[in-house]
């Protein structure tokens, strides 16, 4: 085996299929998107090279910045909700009764497809027949909010299912990481008289800080490119009140037939995510991992 692997040609051969697939399916389209972003193109007829005009328009496009702001809000909320997931995981990993069952309950939303979740929450938010407003009227609130129709509420109304949807994913990551912490450390701390809160803060969290960083990056990237629930539940409406960058890009390219501009938005989104990822890595980088 070692002999085969030391042959450079074999290495090239084995990595070639995957490399080719990634190149043709991911990297070539990215380069093409960047190229289309320099064009005035309706996606159907001929293209015309216009240089950076699309990007110049982008900077003055209030709708784009509005959707970027919404994406940023979503990223902040997602990162904030990580604290909630972490708390839940700490409790679940603390050998409480029924932890196994709770873990499964939290995981279930992950098994549903986005469209099913969207349909479910559209019904929950239904202005007159929805569970939410039925409940609110039953406890005496006369004019319950029109969740998906109210421009000031709609964005937050959609954040709830998005955060709910990913709970299981993050909880399972944290749970696995916490379970990996050697029992001896916790026992030693207990003998020294540390309270559960101290154990969590001083021992457990530092030990899984690597995982926490990864989840922050995942949450931010996932939020910035988020699309599906918003597309199904409101289609970015009413009048762009729940538009995010990805849904705006889709609308430009496929509804307004402005492929060139849509590609520019897509490419900008990619660059933005790269920068943000880099910044987060930089900000959370520590000199050495905690070891006990």
């Amino acid at each position: 085996m070692n002999q085969i692997m030391s042959d450079k040609r074999v290495i090239a051969l084995y990595t070639l299929p995957a490399l080719l697939l990634i190149l043709t399916l991911i990297y070539v389209p990215i380069v093409l998107t960047g190229y289309y972003g320099l064009m005035d193109w309706d996606g159907i007829g001929g293209m015309e090279f216009i240089g950076l005009e699309n990007y110049a328009n982008l900077i003055g496009d209030t709708m784009f910045w509005r959707s970027a702001w919404h994406s940023l809000l979503l990223a902040l909320f997602s990162v904030g909700s990580l604290a909630l997931y972490l708390t839940v995981s700490l409790v679940l990993a603390g050998n409480i009764k029924g932890a196994d069952m709770f873990r499964k309950i939290f995981l279930i939303p992950m098994l549903l497809s986005s469209v099913a979740i969207a349909q479910l929450w559209i019904r929950i938010y239904h202005p007159s027949n929805g569970v939410m407003n039925r409940f609110l009227t039953s406890i005496g609130i006369e004019n319950p909010p029109m969740w998906l129709a109210d421009t000031s509420l709609v964005l937050f109304a959609i954040f709830v299912p998005i955060i709910w949807q990913y709970a299981g994913f993050y909880i399972i990551i944290y749970y696995a990481a916490l379970k990996n912490i050697p029992k001896e450390l916790e026992e030693a701390a207990k003998i020294d008289g540390a309270s559960p809160l101290q154990i969590a803060y001083k021992i457990k969290l530092p030990l899984i800080s690597g995982i926490i960083k990864v989840t922050i990056v995942l949450a931010v990237i996932g939020s910035l490119k988020y699309f599906d629930l918003i597309y199904v539940m409101t289609d970015g409406g009413p009048n762009g009140a729940s538009e995010v960058m990805a849904s705006y890009m889709y609308k430009l390219a496929f509804r307004s037939n402005d492929f060139g501009y849509g590609s520019a938005v897509g490419f900008f989104l990619l660059v933005l995510i790269l920068i943000v990822t880099y910044l987060i890595r930089k900000a959370t980088a520590s000199k050495d991992e905690v070891q006990y």
Partner: peptide, 12 residues
Amino acid sequence: FISGFNGLSDQE
């Protein structure tokens, strides 16, 4: 118009 019309689909 029906309440919450801006959040309702035509089907609903």
